[in-house]
């Protein structure tokens, strides 16, 4: 049950991008998705952006995870590779 934590795309370089997840930056592949632009939210698993979310939905999901508390949110952020 890998949590679907929305991650914001902050930079794009060809088929790769940099995401910001709870303040941590990570480089991942965009090979599975088309049409991702800076500012989009994506769901990530083992180095790949899996799905693109609309920003409103992403904010809602982030708020939901925030209910689990800061600690749990950080735990799941570290799980994002």
């Amino acid at each position: 049950m890998c949590l679907a934590l929305p991650c914001k795309v902050v930079a794009i370089d060809g088929d790769n991008c940099t995401i910001d997840v709870s303040g941590m930056k990570k480089d991942i592949s965009l090979a599975l998705l088309d049409d991702v632009v800076i500012g989009d939210y994506v769901i990530v698993h083992v180095g790949y952006a899996l799905t693109k979310l609309d920003p409103e939905e992403a904010e809602k999901t982030l708020a939901l995870f925030a209910e689990m508390g800061e600690h749990a949110l950080l735990e799941s952020a570290r799980e994002v590779h």
């Binding site: 890998c2 949590l3 939905e57 939901l64 689990m68």
Partner: peptide
């Protein structure tokens, strides 16, 4: 635990959004 206390329809709509893989 995030789904507890919510109306059933809301919990059902949220469940698939919580998980990235399945």
């Amino acid at each position: 635990k995030l789904l507890e206390g919510r109306p059933v329809a809301e919990a059902v709509a949220l469940a698939p959004k919580l998980f990235s893989l399945c």
